[in-house]
Write a protein that binds this DNA or RNA. Structure first.
Lengths: 143, 143
DNA sequence: ATATAATAGGATAAATTTGTCTGAATTAAA
DNA sequence: TTTAATTCAGACAAATTTATCCTATTATAT
């Protein structure tokens, strides 16, 4: 389970990827409205991701956020890890710090298998999949 | 990802199941020490689970907690749902409320598949698996 | 130049989760 | 019957996460 912050971030990044077109920035007001999130909060989140290089931003009138080809190479897993850390993809199913193949908790083997697949789902979903040229227009909020 | 409360609960319940023997109660101090959790906090958690019928308790000297055959029929998934709700097993990978097969988010199909397997892992791990007669003595904390 | 509209940054506030304290009730042993 | 050891209950406190406010900075159009 991802944090709310992380869920907002994924939706926002997908939305920005879907709508990034040459010479157009997408602003926070629009993003917040389209992904069902508090405007100021998603602003903060994207500012943080922008600092880390996950998307471009520009201030001033007609400013906003943008995901270019390079930034679109990031996967959803990269974003999750940047925000929530890797516990969801690497951690123990019972929350034990030391749990591992050599020192497994009572559910380690079964859990690890599925956890690895979960990682794969997020890792293999790249932002490029959502970019304008490929985009099928998946909606990120109830209409 | 489970809440910390839930992780403590699972570890505690497994520990109690492992050590439940006829006419012996396991007390909170022992449980907390063995699963690496704050004593008063896991106390509260088990009191809640006990109210909901997930384990038996008895007050007074030599009192404590106990899991009998009937309570041992519960799975780890039952406990997770009792504490964290079913979002982890039923929710959307991007946190959307309305997401479903008919109205899928951009990762719904891949995510759902793995999420269902995750549910299965917790659902098919029953407390009875850990009861004294079957117990292989899996340790729930670093020694 | 000026007005306008956007992000950036830092402080703050609200809500939730996690953890603690205190005393009451209960049980069994001595 | 007294004492000791336990869970139970409710209030409280601390920490973390989520969300907002205010001002500064920046960029564009007019």
């Amino acid at each position: 389970m991802l944090s709310k912050t992380c869920e907002y971030a994924l939706r926002a990044m997908i939305y920005v990827a879907q709508h990034s077109r040459e010479g157009e920035m997408i602003n926070i007001k629009e993003i917040a409205a389209k992904i069902n999130s508090p405007e100021l909060f998603i602003g903060k989140i994207l500012q943080g991701l922008s600092k880390k290089g996950f998307l471009l931003s520009s201030k001033g009138r007609y400013g906003g956020f943008y995901i270019d080809d390079k930034a679109a190479r990031n996967s959803l897993a990269d974003i999750v890890i940047a925000i929530d850390g890797d516990k969801v993809f690497k951690g123990c199913g019972l929350g034990l710090d030391y749990c591992s193949s050599k020192n497994p908790c009572p559910v380690h083997h079964e859990y690890k298998k599925v956890r690895d697949e979960m990682y794969k789902v997020y890792r293999e979903t790249k932002l490029s999949k959502f970019r304008a040229e490929n985009c099928t227009g998946a909606v990120l909020k109830r209409i």
